[in-house]
Design a protein around this nucleic acid. Structure first.
Length: 547
RNA sequence: GCCCUCGUAGCUCAGGUGGACAGAGCGACCGCCUCCUAAGCGGUAGGCCGCAGGUUCGAAUCCUGCCGGGGGCACCA
């Protein structure tokens, strides 16, 4: 869906254009890009530029002098909404805008709505696959998997909002030793034998074993169990509002000719050779510090294809068979060592390795020694979700960057779940609906926006809400480009914060509120609702109408 | 040893593609409900932004080194 045309030219563009002509008029060559930022401090205005700092040297003057001349030029022909321009500090040029620019923001938000506001098209319909979680189906997924699940899903939502066509994929390791060990565990449990070396001790597997009534065959028992486990993993993920488009079977790669075909194709690169009975790939040619990797083991080692060979075949399928323009894999830091080899493999297939992006999330760990009621050393995702709810879980995992290695204190999380930032945000959303309800009880109806005068919106609390709202398009863009959904979390908290303050200080309804003010505020409230709805949706969290 | 990543307030973290006196939540302390949900609001206390150099008009942010935490360097997946 293409983003709607802005109702008015963005203020930023207006300011930039004026700055260019101002630079021209003082005889300074305007730079390619003019930096315009929103100062951290209110008294520094609504927008600020450092051009004078940056260009003073080239202009043969000092920053404040240049800034002063720029201000004079700007004052001669002030841009729309600009109330005052001033030189500040070492040579910043600060723009102080009239509230009218924020009234335009309000109009923008409301007319574009949940669908349109802060939507971008720079993705150009590029087909992106986001592969995440992909945990082995040898037991329920745990809290750490859930962390990356939230991340991957929200990243997908951001990409969609920015014009990419997203496919969410879970790579199912349903093959080989993994499955055989699982089968052995099931059979051993069923027969009451001790678990084999490397077996799966979880209660879940134990439970499955008692339900298994198939033959005493390791493969079959393993497949059967994996299917059941996978079904449960789906339930766990759906419980936190995550739905995959594709559950891609590793067996489908390894049991077809795909790996052989891939190696044949790799040979064309001239980077494949045989040595000591094994097949090797020169990964160093494409930047892998390890230099070379085995694709097929020597006969003495069993003669199997390596995991890497299968993985390259899988990525050949992604790029060359299914034709994704870009692939983003979300991996835990424990897989970091695979990145360079895989990228080299992809490059050897003739695919630009920049089309493969691997986001490494740092390891999630649990602080409490006592981790779960079940055997094993992980806490199942559903156990936590059952206690704190999906929204707390999702936001908890989306407050920090994935470059942080969180240590989760589950006791604390459970005890403090009521204090979760989600509720702070959701409460703001609920309050908005409460205002709507109250309005209809009072028989107050909101007039059409184009008939409402927004000029009563001058209270600092009102303006703060609008300033935050004005920021969402850039936040969404940045969060998407940087693959950083936690920036949305921060924004949504800020908006809720501003709204709560407004709610406290500015009454929307009541006998002592002038009708014109009520009308304008009702629209301010609606704009806030739109902003919260967009933000919460990007986080995959509910926007409740009451709490 | 080499590579990746982190080190910001008591705790959990924002900010990090350089900018103007360092932010939030929780915790602590003090206030605020005859009024649209107090899951809220306002205020106070609390930080040589790991350490040392360097680049720059300007560094929490960039570079180098060191210290500390996590992860990785298989013919394992």
């Amino acid at each position: 869906m293409p983003p709607p045309t802005p109702v008015t030219p963005m203020i930023r563009d207006v300011l930039e254009a004026s700055l260019r002509s101002a630079l021209d008029s003082v005889g300074v060559q305007p730079p390619e890009t003019i930096e315009l930022e929103r100062p951290a401090r209110r008294e520094h205005g609504d927008w600020s530029t450092n051009v004078a700092l940056a260009l003073a040297k080239a202009a043969g003057t000092n920053p404040r002098e240049l800034a002063t001349r720029l201000v004079a030029a700007l004052e001669a022909d002030p841009p729309r909404h600009v109330e005052r321009v001033e030189v500040a500090g070492p040579g910043f040029v600060n723009f102080h805008l009239a509230p009218t620019w924020l009234h335009e923001v309000l109009t923008e938000v409301v007319t574009q709505g949940e669908e349109g506001y802060a939507r971008h098209d720079f993705g150009n319909g590029e087909r992106v696959q986001v592969e995440f979680v992909s945990a082995n189906p040898t037991g329920p997924i745990h809290v750490g998997n859930g962390w990356f699940a939230s991340y991957g899903d929200s990243l997908g939502r951001l990409l969609e909002r920015c014009g990419y066509e997203v496919t969410r994929e879970y790579y199912v390791n349903d093959t080989g030793g993994q499955i055989r060990r699982l089968g052995e565990s099931v059979l051993a449990r069923r027969a009451g034998r001790p678990l084999p070396e490397g077996g799966y001790p979880s209660g879940f597997v134990k439970g499955l074993a008692s339900a298994y009534d198939g033959p005493e065959d390791v493969e079959q028992a393993g497949r059967w169990a994996a299917e059941h486990i996978l079904r449960f993993i789906k339930v766990q993920l759906e419980a936190i509002n995550i739905h995959f488009d594709e559950w891609f079977s590793q067996a489908s790669i390894e049991e077809s000719e795909a790996v052989e075909e891939t190696i044949e194709e790799l040979r064309k690169s001239g980077l494949v050779w045989e040595e000591d009975g094994a097949i090797w790939l020169d990964t160093g040619a494409h930047g892998d510090p390890r230099g070379k990797r085995v694709l097929r083991k020597s006969p003495e080692q069993g003669g199997d294809y390596t995991y890497l060979a299968g993985d390259i075949a899988y990525h050949r399928n992604k790029f060359l068979i299914r034709g994704f323009d870009r692939v983003i894999n979300v991996w835990g830091a424990d897989h970091q060592g695979q990145v360079a080899s895989l990228k080299a493999g992809v490059a050897a297939l003739g695919v630009d390795k920049d089309r493969l992006e691997v986001r490494i999330g740092q390891m999630v760990s649990l602080s409490s020694g006592r981790i779960g009621k079940r055997l094993g050393n992980a806490v199942d995702l559903d156990d936590l979700v059952e206690d704190v709810g999906p929204d707390v879980m999702r936001v908890l995992s989306l407050v920090a960057s994935i470059d942080q290695a969180p240590t989760i204190d589950l006791e604390k999380v459970r005890a403090d779940s009521k204090e979760s930032p989600v509720y702070y945000v959701q409460y703001a959303h609920a309050r908005i609906h409460s205002i709507g309800k109250r309005a209809s009880e009072l028989g107050v109806t909101r007039a059409p926006l184009d008939e409402v005068d927004l000029s009563p919106l001058t209270h600092e609390r009102e303006l703060e809400v609008l300033r935050t709202l004005s920021t969402l398009p850039e936040v969404v863009e940045l969060a998407c480009v940087e693959r950083a959904p936690h920036k949305v979390t921060a924004w949504v908290r800020e908006l809720a914060d501003r709204f709560h303050s407004f709610y406290h200080d500015c009454r929307v309804l009541g006998d002592d509120v002038p009708p014109a003010t009520t009308q304008a505020r009702l629209w301010l409230v609606e704009a806030t609702r739109v902003g919260l709805a967009i933000g919460l949706d990007l986080l995959g969290v509910a926007a409740p109408e009451s709490m």
